[in-house]
């Protein structure tokens, strides 16, 4: 008898989500922020797949997860390009120092 239910997966994903948020908020380095975003996306993905499995939705949930992975790849590529540009302009990638929007 399997004792693992949908709730277990949901708890894992919500904790992972909050860790991702924590990473995004606290880290100075832009690349670390990106890692936090990846964690958030993965948390969402776990939810997709778990609901698909327990909710008897067939394969559509997995397909949504697949699409999220594709989007994450695109997002990572663009974000890295932006980071490189920021590095060229400011010679560092600490986002707390990049606050020219304020002035």
């Amino acid at each position: 008898m399997i004792n693992i239910t949908l709730y277990h997966y949901l708890i894992v994903s919500s904790v992972l989500f909050c860790l991702g948020i924590f990473g995004v908020i606290t880290r100075k380095n832009a690349i670390m922020v990106l890692m936090g975003i990846e964690l958030i996306l993965n948390a969402a993905n776990i939810n997709f797949v778990a609901f698909a499995r327990y909710g008897n939705f067939g394969n559509s949930g997995q397909l949504a997860a697949l699409f999220v992975i594709i989007l994450a790849a695109a997002e990572a590529a663009i974000a890295m390009a932006i980071v490189l540009n920021i590095y060229k302009t400011f010679t560092n990638i600490n986002i707390d120092e990049i606050d020219t929007l304020k002035d």
Partner: peptide
């Protein structure tokens, strides 16, 4: 999805992030 997760995330995105670290 598991396979894709391995290939895309570990093989692609993570390496990309590491490259970013090295370049910056």
């Amino acid at each position: 999805i598991a396979i894709v997760q391995l290939v895309v995330y570990v093989g692609g995105i993570l390496v990309l992030l590491l490259f970013g670290v090295m370049l910056t």
